[in-house]
Design a protein around this nucleic acid. Structure first.
Lengths: 162, 162
DNA sequence: TTCTTTGTTGACTAAAATAATCAACATAGT
DNA sequence: ACTATGTTGATTATTTTAGTCAACAAAGAA
């Protein structure tokens, strides 16, 4: 039950893209550097995302990859579907016919519930959410960093950790 | 994001065991036949279940495998944990240290939510639930079968569902 | 006791998936 | 032209999956 690097790296690539949208096309090289993923591998991950209409690429100098939809309109369920295929934990959940036991199999019903649960998370999370959380995290870090530097000069209103 | 045959077959083995508990030890051979899984493979799946204290085995003639706990006390989360290891979709959810990006990584947070969602299903489903659903399904099938055979002669008092 | 039934363990293997790398090529700016 | 960039396909090493097989151990039955 592990997500492969396709889904993980691909999601991070899109997040990186979302964080740098509005600056024109983003070269894979830059994403590779920032995300610490080999560019050669990203080249392959971008293909299904283009086929899925999530991104567009521009060749040549000053080229790169651009998001085609607003981050708020890109659900993680869509991303994972493109990169990993169905998130169903077993194939018979989507295709009952592949096993003659499907009809009477109750474990299959449980795997179906699992699929629903996973989908619930991925359907309600958008790229915009990731962007928001990322910015919050970075702001929080900068806050605590300077807090540390200034020897806790003013620590009354940081908030955010819990 | 697929469950391997370990988790799937192992769960079915335990369900089969639960359905035949109270009849003494159940030989792997019988489970293999009913569940249509090779006995050689089941031999390997039983090992972690014994180590986890879910079943006990008896060697020799009339031997077999027996459940050590009541089906109502066996949660699927426990079963899957033993057979597949953690259900976390990525390792960094359980072990932040393995990636220096963990602290600032928001995709990791999403995978954490996914883990929670999956766990929610597996923690609230017991072997007893599977047994109950299985019996309901079989009763329903018998109902519609005889209904079909007898051309709906008497369909008032089937009962047994719920 | 001896035979048979059953589980136990470890070695081995075929096939597939994973996670890339590399090179040749296409295209668009400069 | 030259350079920066994406595109595609071939290739590969490694790991995981999904088993099989055989030698062995133990317990009941004859």
């Amino acid at each position: 039950m592990k997500l492969s690097t396709k889904g993980r790296y691909g999601t991070r690539m899109l997040l990186d893209l979302a964080l740098h949208s509005g600056e024109g096309p983003v070269p894979l090289k830059d994403i590779a550097r920032r995300q610490e993923i080999s560019q050669s591998y990203l080249e392959h991950l971008i293909t299904p995302l283009m086929a899925g209409g999530l991104v567009r690429s521009t060749r040549g100098a000053r080229g790169g990859v651009s998001l085609l939809k607003h981050p708020r309109d890109i659900k993680l369920s869509e991303v994972i579907q493109l990169l990993e295929g169905s998130i169903a934990p077993v194939d018979c959940v989507n295709h009952p016919k592949i096993c003659h036991r499907s009809q009477l199999c109750v474990t299959r019903d449980v795997w179906g519930e699992m699929k629903k649960a996973i989908n619930g998370v991925l359907e309600t999370t958008t790229l915009q959410d990731l962007v928001k959380w990322q910015k919050q995290k970075e702001a929080a870090r900068r806050g605590s960093e300077s807090l540390h530097l200034r020897e806790a000069a003013s620590l009354s209103n940081e908030g955010g950790d819990q």
